[in-house]
Design a binder for these strands. Sequence first.
DNA 1: ATAACACTTAGACCTCACTCTAAGTCAAGT
DNA 2: ACTTGACTTAGAGTGAGGTCTAAGTGTTAT
Lengths: 121, 121
Amino acid sequence: MRISEVSKIFDISSDTLRYYEKIGLIGPIKKEGNIRNYNEDDLNRINFVKCMRSANLPIEVLIKYMKLFEEGDETIKERRDLLVAQQGELAKNIADLQAAYDRLSYKIDLYDKQLLEKNLK
Amino acid sequence: MRISEVSKIFDISSDTLRYYEKIGLIGPIKKEGNIRNYNEDDLNRINFVKCMRSANLPIEVLIKYMKLFEEGDETIKERRDLLVAQQGELAKNIADLQAAYDRLSYKIDLYDKQLLEKNLK
DNA sequence: ATAACACTTAGACCTCACTCTAAGTCAAGT
DNA sequence: ACTTGACTTAGAGTGAGGTCTAAGTGTTAT
């Protein structure tokens, strides 16, 4: 599969896909001649990366994870620990977002009450 | 209250507090002579900003909100709508983080099973 | 009175994660 | 034959959000 198709499927620009490859996050992708040909494994990795990036996991961490993966079974424990650490960070982030969400809800309620009063006057 | 104390209380650097003021996010703070003296209102605003920033609401949006606030009661509806829009964004973000969290949980489970098997061999 | 420390300013610099540009290759359609 | 359009590369540029520096002015403890 060509880069343009992958780009469409995942809504990630071709530039970004090449960038991810250059920094060692998803490659190297095998080429036919000079043109990248993404296989299913590649797509799975991109899918994972996209999911993690959309939750703001740092690229550096994901690169580290991918490198451990390449190193084989000896790194299973280390990979697990890395994921657990990131999960912890995520839990904190979710709590922060939730706190802001709740606070917004509260404020919106107040505004709605004010608007209602205004209309009654 | 001086900037250094505010900085400690909220764990926001003095640089950042001054930066927020410069860009119109939390000021202007009244000064005694040449030195900022934060009052309770200021602290409340900083508290709100900190909460929203920790959920990644863009600074530009917060500046807009603060400006509407200064403009008085005519902007209540507009402020409400702005908050509702941000709440919507937040809901999306929370869903993304949650999806990543769940995926990590799943993967961690798999690793734990692998590690268990390894130990049994 | 002098050292140490908190404060001030303007503006340069930094990190992250892309995003874009320039210059070029190659294959297919008209 | 030639244009169109997707692909390639290296490397420069961008935007958000701070963070740091330099040079200077008070204020307080010894």
